[in-house]
């Protein structure tokens, strides 16, 4: 039984927002929801293979999460795709701006997707924006 469609739009590159987006996507994906994730703006560079820069914390919670053993947000997104059925789409505009192709991005991401297609895919679903 699919409970509902949940669309997670991630545009921030901050640790707290990426972490919360990953938590929503992963738990929803393993709880029989249909999950679509759209990565754009400052979120996308974190999904380039070998990305060196750690996501910066906005505040105390982010710093504490980095110190303690919170599951890394990229691992949660990967689990959302592997253990659930989340589909994670990189924004084609952000890829053009960054100058990267699909091969440069983490393997669990889907094909480059523009807003027109994502809006169509997201039609009728809840939208969570980070």
């Amino acid at each position: 039984m699919s409970a509902s469609k949940i669309c997670v739009v991630v545009v921030s590159g901050s640790l707290e927002r990426l972490q919360m987006a990953a938590m929503v996507a992963s738990v929803a994906a393993v709880s029989e929801h249909e999950v679509l994730v759209f990565l754009s703006m400052n979120a996308l560079p974190h999904f380039v293979k070998g990305a060196a820069a750690a996501a910066p914390a906005e505040g105390e919670m982010g710093r504490l999460m980095a110190e303690k053993k919170a599951p890394p947000f990229k691992m949660l997104f990967e689990q959302a795709a592997a253990l659930g059925s989340a589909r994670i789409y990189p924004c084609s505009m952000a890829m053009d701006v960054l100058g990267v192709d699909k091969a440069a991005l983490e393997d669990y991401l889907e094909e480059a997707t523009g807003l027109t297609r994502f809006l169509d895919l997201a039609s009728g679903g809840q939208v969570w924006t980070f």
Binding site: M23, S26, V27, V30, M65, K69, A70, P71, L76
Partner: peptide, 17 residues
């Protein structure tokens, strides 16, 4: 042990398979 939400849940789901 030592992990935070949703780490233990995700580990359970992987183990269930």
């Amino acid at each position: 042990r030592g992990s935070f939400c949703p780490g233990p849940l995700m580990e359970l789901i992987a183990a269930l398979k």
